[in-house]
Amino acid sequence: MIKRMSLKKISICIIALFAIFLFYLFPTNEKLKVNKELNYVEDDKNLNTIFLIDSNNYLAKTSIDLDDKTIKNKAIKLLTALINDEKYADKIPNGFKSIIPNDTKILNLEYKDGVIKVDFSKELMDTNKENEEKIIEAIVYTLTSIDKVKYIIIYMEGEILTKLPQSNINLPSTLDRNFGINKEYNLTGYKNISKTTIYYVNKYNNKEYYVPVTKISNDGREKAEIIIEELGNNKTYNTNLMSYLNSNTKIVSLNEANNQLVIDFNDKIFNDKDSNTILDEVIYTISLSILDNYNVDSVIFTVNDQEIYKSK
């Protein structure tokens, strides 16, 4: 009887060991289930986005270390950096410079309910015709990078700025990212005109950064399709605007719900089919572009309906 019980125990142990062996021999496809949440702002909570001029005269997305907690104080410091980069010379990355004339003063700044109202001295427009619009773009894109800030109203010497003096460009009294940045007009006709902001990647001193370009073109397709095609083909003749997206990447489906945009891609989005990884540059260029063109708080990438990445 003891012998029978021992045999029984041994049999159970062998079966259990065999089951464990089988489990490790045939792994499940865990890799596709890994969710990576992506932070655009590095873990340092003091880093704030600022749009400065790069060496190719594009307004580029960079960051600056500021330790203010309130939206108002943060906005003032960011604008100060946009005005006079000497004051923050040690914080501004190499290769970038401010755009607003140096002797411009911030006369007043208020924040309420998502709207920043800022009054500048007249030196704001002491610049050449080509820079006027860039100044507005830098202010709008920088300040709307602050969490909760959606709209900007720019005053000059107490009056709302509604027209740029030399270029005669009209400004809506309330500005947001719909204004565009680094605008390029590629129009061959007047039908099916759309405006899409696409983020490219560039490098300075081996450090990568992102450059948004608002393209106005005759293309009536869904903006996500335009973004993927532009980044995949990288048709720009400017070699300072790069993209690493595989040109065979396609959107399988698009679903916007609950303030999120879920994009299902084909597997060409992976840079390595075996490890199912996506390059960070591909993630950032697509996500930043989507967030500027759709009214959503986050973007989710899926492949074969399995979540790969989710932006924060």
Binding site: I169, N170, L187, I193, S194, I216
Partner: peptide, 17 residues
């Protein structure tokens, strides 16, 4: 041409998309 007029008007923000 109409297309050129549209480009100019969009640049000047006289009309918007």
């Amino acid at each position: 041409g109409r297309a050129s007029a549209v480009v100019e008007l969009l640049r000047l923000n006289e009309i918007s998309l």
